[in-house]
Every structure is written in C-alpha cells, then in structure tokens.
Design a protein around this nucleic acid. Structure first.
Lengths: 219, 219
DNA sequence: ATCGCCGTCCACCGACCGGTGGACCCCCGC
DNA sequence: GCGGGGGTCCACCGGTCGGTGGACGGCGAT
C-alpha cells in the first residue's frame, strides 16, 4: 500500500481464484477474465474445502465463489476465508437470488454478491472494487435486501418452532411431532401457534409453504 | 451410414448453437468446445425465442439448450425445434435434475440430458452421439427416470387435483378452495383424498411438500 | 432483581379435516 | 353400446387441529 511496493497497486494485476463445481462455469469465467489484462486466474477449485486450501497456498486477491457446492458450502467457505485478517476478498457469484442465500453469504462476510447472468463488464468492475475492499451487490440483490428491511415482520422463528415446523412439513401429526421431539403434544401446538402468528398464516399447511418461501426450512 | 454419402459423416465438423441465459456459461461452453477440432459454434442465444430464430437461420447440427430461461422456456424451445423433421438435435444441458424438468425435456423431444457438472470429454462425446441421432442421458438422470419407472404409483395428478392442491398450499380451507374453484366442499375433499392416495401421504401438509418435491406444483 | 422471552406443560371447546360409501353426468375407447 | 375414468355432489362420523387461558422454570437484560 506504501510507495515502497515495487509495482504500484492501481496497475498491479489482480490474482484471482475461481471456485465453482461446474467445469463449464469455471472455463467461462477464466475465458471471460483472461480478456482483461489486469486479471490473472491463479487457481480453480471445485468445492469449498478445496477453495480454502488453495486460497492459503496461492494467496489470491479476490475469490470468485459459487454458493451451492458439494463437500463444503460456499457460504461456509466464505466465512472461513474472511475469518482471517489477511484473507482474500470474496465475491459471491451464483445463479440463485433467494433471500436465505443472500443473507447467509453477506453474514459470512462476502464482499459482494453477483448473479451469473451479469454482463462481463459488470463482473470485471465488481472484481476491481471488491479488491479495493468495497462491497458490491447486484441491483436485484439490493432490491431483495431492501424489501427485507422494509418488512420488519422479519419471520424469525425460534429453534424449537423451526424444529416443529420441519416435522409438520414431513406430514407428522401434532402427537407424532411430540414423540419425535420428546415433548408433549400441547407444547407442539404452542410452538405451532406462535409460528403461525410470526408467519402471518392461519394453518399448518400455509405455515410450511411460508417457511419454505422464507428459506426457514428446506424441502 | 452408407458409402453413398458425399462427405463422410465421422469427419464432418459439427455446427453447434449454444443457448443459455448466462453469459458466463455461454463463454465456458464456447471455450470448452473450441478445443475440439470437429466442433464449430456457429451461434449463441440467450433465451428460447432467440434460439428458435437462430436455429432457423443457421441450421446447426446440434443445439446445446439450457432449461430455465426467460422469454421462452428451454423445454418449449426444444419442442418447437424438434417438431420439424429437418430440425437440429437438441442436447439439454442444465444444472437441475428435478424429475419434472427431466420429464418435460424428454417429452419435448430432447436427444439428451446432461448436467452442467459433466466433465469436458463426456460433453464432447454426448454432442457427437446426439448428432448421430442417439439419445444420451447423464447417469444421474437415468437413475431418476429408472426410479420413476419402478414406482408405478407415478404421481400423475389430474388437472383438478393439482388445482386443489395448489390452493391448499396457499393455506385455504376445503370450503375456501371450493369457493375459489366454484365447486362444492365435498368435491374438494374427494380430489384431495385421491391426491393423498397417489402421493402416498395421509394429510394435506405432507401432500403439499410431496407435490413440491415431485415438481407438480411450484412454491 | 425484576422483567420479559423461551420452552415446557395442561384442559377445554368448536371447527375443520380425513375417510367411507354412495350417487350422477359426460366423454372417450373398445 | 358399454365400460371406465374424470369431475361433480351428498351425508355422516370420529379424530385432529386451531385457539384460549392459564401455569411453571430458566436465562439474559435492565
């Protein structure tokens, strides 16, 4: 950062690590990035664990990270990379713009969140800004985060309420849920009623779809 | 296949059309395919409608088609391309291996179904075989189709049963569904019971998640 | 230390749901 | 023409669910 550095930062080439489980996507990124002189792809990883290992060895400036990956999730990998002070910037690049995905990535410390349908120049610009420490979010992502803010009725369910809802989604009756979780049926109903209230619904089925939509439970 | 053919098929270069709404994926495919001498990417399209137009003008041998796309869906585009006798072979190349996606693509007449995490050589081989008119499915896809065959309880719901289930997923009561669809509550219950039977579940909530999983209804 | 939230539990009621066993019509195929 | 499947409707019963009102012990915060 000081003038002591041999090659001045603005002209320095950015060392990139590409992380995606799809070979096609990795090739596309490498092809796309190699058209810019100030980028150099120093490595590729096919899952989160590999990404963490390679990042340690290669010390890239920016990591382009997919979210849905085998072995180690993109969000988890991001958290590990960002937990170190001298870690690389992480730019999440994914197909999905689910609320839950975005929030998990941002909470994990991602410096940016772009969608894979981003045009080439947007991507290049985002990488340069992420390298400078800026946070860059795609417009649709910003919109989602904003709408989430606007709705202070942020459906934040208790651990237990979520457990119960997960069982209900499997089609278990209240009594069966009680047996499964080792609690009384009355308790199940209490949790469920509170969940209804928070989700703004009136019956168990709507609660499940609402929770699914909100990313609180998975299918 | 006979010696009468002027230019022997095996040595001819295959003209390809790449269809995907993500620029990154298109670049990746082009980069990956250009490494093979017998492939020539003659065009790229970002959605199904564009794909149909370009296929008419460029008359490619094989179309590499994504499924989830704006404007015109990949399955619909495939159906249009395959409806003509002299149309190109269509190789579906997608991230998703949902039952519903696979079935729709195959029913639309796709010559193959590959996942985007396929290694390069598998993809190249699949393209050559699709050009010869063979049908090539990725192993996980085959497995899914097979398991679907094995279960003769193929969850094929009636139009009406699906309508009812969609309403139930929204949290409507049986009576409310009846009002919504202009039918009696008794009828709603009948459809629902039949749907339970077909889906192998015992209550409305499990039916909704099962239908979601099977791709019968959307969230 | 007191307040509030979470988690647990109980009893009771009315409403709705799951399930049975019918019934009728229409359309398509054999 | 007759069977069969989809769609519509009805009545009835028992069980479960939705909802109320209350209770108690932790635990973190003020």
């Amino acid at each position: 950062m000081t003038s002591v550095t041999p090659s001045p930062v603005p002209a320095a080439t950015l060392r990139l690590l590409v992380v995606d489980d799809h070979p096609v996507v990795r090739m596309g990124l490498v092809a796309m990035l190699s058209e810019h002189e100030d980028f150099e792809v120093v490595g590729e990883a096919a899952d989160g664990a590999e990404a963490v290992l390679l990042a340690e060895r290669l010390t890239p400036d920016v990591v382009l990270m997919d979210l849905r990956m085998p072995v180690l999730d993109g969000a988890a990998a991001t958290a590990r990379l960002r937990s170190r002070a001298d870690g690389p910037a992480v730019l999440v690049l994914t197909t999905y713009d689910t609320d839950a995905d975005i929030v998990r990535a941002v909470e994990a410390g991602a410096n940016g969140y772009l969608l894979k349908d981003s045009p080439r120049e947007v991507l290049a610009d985002a990488i340069r800004r992420a390298a400078r420490g800026e946070t860059v979010l795609a417009p649709p992502v910003v919109a989602r985060l904003a709408s989430r803010m606007r709705a202070p009725a942020g459906p934040s369910l208790t651990d237990r309420e979520t457990d119960v809802l997960r069982c209900v989604a499997r089609g278990l009756s209240n009594a069966a849920v009680g047996r499964e979780l080792h609690i009384g049926e009355a308790t199940v109903k209490t949790h469920l009623l509170r969940a209804f209230e928070k989700l703004g619904v009136a019956d168990r089925t709507a609660a499940v779809t609402a929770a699914l939509r909100a990313g609180i439970i998975e299918l």
